[in-house]
Amino acid sequence: MLRLENELKDLILNNMSEKIELMLESDKTFSKYLKQIQSKKMDPFEAADKITKSLIK
């Protein structure tokens, strides 16, 4: 039972990861925050937090 549970969790996480990757590629928010990080206007942790919040709203 535990093996099946772990396998199902892995499949779900992989699916979510793929969907998030597609969302980030198509969303201008990601590139906007990336530019802010590159220009030292924002740190990566703050940007990641803001992007995560925008994805789960």
Rank of each mutant, 00 (worst) to 15 (best):
M1K: 13
M1P: 11
M1A: 15
L2N: 10
L2K: 09
L2F: 14
R3E: 09
L4M: 07
L4C: 09
E5W: 10
N6V: 11
N6Y: 13
E7D: 11
E7P: 06
E7H: 14
E7M: 09
E7T: 10
L8V: 12
L8C: 05
L8T: 09
L8D: 14
K9L: 15
D10T: 04
D10W: 09
L11W: 12
L11M: 10
L11Q: 15
I12T: 04
I12D: 02
I12N: 06
L13H: 06
N14K: 15
N14M: 11
N14I: 13
N15D: 14
N15Q: 14
N15V: 15
N15T: 10
N15C: 06
M16V: 14
M16H: 08
S17P: 13
S17I: 08
S17G: 13
S17T: 14
E18H: 11
E18C: 08
E18W: 10
E18V: 13
K19F: 09
E21V: 05
E21N: 07
E21S: 10
E21F: 09
L22H: 11
L22Y: 12
L22G: 12
L22V: 12
L22P: 04
M23L: 15
M23H: 15
L24R: 03
E25W: 07
S26G: 14
S26W: 08
D27N: 07
D27F: 02
D27Q: 03
K28M: 05
K28F: 14
K28N: 12
K28D: 08
T29S: 07
F30C: 02
F30R: 02
F30L: 00
K32F: 05
K32Y: 02
K32D: 08
Y33I: 00
Y33R: 01
L34E: 04
L34M: 07
Q36C: 04
Q36M: 08
Q36D: 03
Q36K: 12
Q36R: 03
Q38H: 04
S39Y: 15
K40V: 05
K40D: 10
K40R: 12
K40L: 15
K40Q: 14
K40P: 06
K41Y: 09
M42F: 02
M42H: 03
M42E: 00
M42S: 01
M42T: 02
M42A: 03
M42V: 02
D43I: 02
D43L: 00
D43P: 07
D43Q: 03
D43N: 10
P44C: 06
P44R: 01
P44V: 00
F45V: 06
F45R: 00
F45Y: 09
E46K: 00
E46F: 04
E46G: 00
E46W: 05
A47E: 02
A47L: 01
A47W: 00
A48T: 01
A48C: 04
A48N: 08
A48F: 00
A48P: 03
D49A: 06
D49E: 05
D49M: 05
K50E: 07
K50C: 08
K50Q: 02
I51A: 01
T52H: 11
T52E: 07
K53L: 13
K53A: 06
L55D: 02
L55I: 09
L55V: 04
I56C: 08
K57D: 15
K57M: 07
K57W: 11
